[in-house]
Design a protein around this nucleic acid. Structure first.
Lengths: 223, 223
DNA sequence: AACAGCCTTACGGAAAACCGTAAAATTAGA
DNA sequence: TCTAATTTTACGGTTTTCCGTAAGGCTGTT
């Protein structure tokens, strides 16, 4: 496995650039390009392939603020999908504030990323470990994620519950949800059970009513 | 107005520290202390007052990730409120990803902060401007906020509406809200009008029902 | 003073949510 | 395989929300 020595970083928050730069410097990675839009990253990656000097590694954030500029790629996920088509050998390191386990698992499983580092108190050291792992041809996924503390309570909330909460959030009433679940072959689907499950969720989150339930679910980041 | 020369920075994302440090270096601010927990910032600010060498400026994030450590102050807002009691002269610069106008206005009006800089593509330059403004005894609030694109629609939503949405979010039903408004002398307070106003909000936000209304309001950052 | 326009309040019927009970179906265990 | 336990479904009564109509009140204009 060849050593990383040409890197592109897609990160819209300017104040993070220096922190990333200093890590790359430690690894004596001289060729490092910073961009603040996904579109720019894509263009540069594509061009580098064409010029026969492709990037070895893309470090990218997931969420990018919208501004006046019109863009094709709204977020890191879109970018990664597109980049995979242009450069099959490029390694991907996602660097994001997102610390929810099921989201991170999604990126490993569906986007085949090579490393995930969570922005936070330990991110500099995690970045070092991640790059070291990639240099050795391994994947990296920080074990020191805070979600281990916040998500333990969420384990009792399953995908059905989340789907149900999402339906409520979108404004469907109980009988509409029942019909939709029947159509999508989601079980259970009776209005009675849906009612009961909503009630369980309200008890679980100590919500006063369904409105409060959705508010709390959103605050906790479950939906 | 005396020049800033002793600063404490409360920011849990380690990768941002270097970016902040380089800005402070430009202003020749030598005394800069970085902490990753609100609690530590509070303790150090309190101690500095006691030692007769108080900080001139607190730069703080708003949201701090939870981890294994038990803390008294969960977020920047709690910290700022507490700090104001310990050091009445300290300047406050909030440095956060939050770019929704309503929230930012809240910090200026209720917490009497001195500057707000939004983490983003232009944050380094905005930080410079903010510190310059504070040095001159002025307040600073970045005009280059992306919310200018998303928030123009919110001007028609007044404080009454927001209070109403907050009540709904907390799970109060219409008659409870009516009683609370009557007690707090908030007008109008009849269940009938409350019902009507909720309906107006639903039309305005094209919400299917009240649950959807609260979900949309939270997504837009109005509450 | 008279009037129009807007906001507030009141009320009644229909729809949906809420709550308890109970039957039917499914699963788990002996 | 039979039984016990759990989950799903069904149903009826109560509360709350939803929606239309209409009366009452405040303000500004002529």
């Amino acid at each position: 496995m060849s050593r990383i020595n040409k890197v592109i970083i897609a990160e819209d928050i300017k104040s993070i650039h220096l922190g990333l730069s200093s890590i790359l410097e430690k690894f004596h990675i001289e060729k490092r390009d910073f961009v603040q839009y996904c579109d720019d990253a894509y263009i540069m990656i594509k061009k580098a392939v064409k010029d026969n000097s492709p990037y070895d590694l893309l470090i990218t954030d997931l969420s990018f603020a919208k501004d006046h500029r019109e863009v094709n790629f709204l977020n890191g996920e879109d970018l990664i999908k597109a980049v995979k088509n242009e450069n099959k050998n490029i390694k991907i390191l996602v660097f994001s504030i997102e610390d929810r386990l099921h989201k991170i698992e999604y990126f490993f499983n569906h986007l085949e990323i090579d490393a995930y580092v969570c922005k936070g108190r330990n991110d500099q050291k995690d970045l070092e470990k991640a790059i070291k792992a990639i240099n050795q041809g391994n994947k990296y996924f920080s074990k020191s994620l805070s979600n281990l503390y916040t998500n333990k309570c969420h384990q009792e909330i399953d995908n059905y519950d989340i789907e149900l909460l999402r339906m409520l959030e979108q404004g469907y009433n109980q009988s509409e949800i029942s019909k939709i679940f029947k159509r999508k072959k989601v079980s259970p689907s009776s209005t009675s059970t849906i009612e009961k499950r909503i009630n369980n969720l309200k008890n679980y989150f100590k919500a006063k009513n369904t409105i409060n339930l959705i508010a709390k679910s959103k605050d906790l980041g479950i939906i």
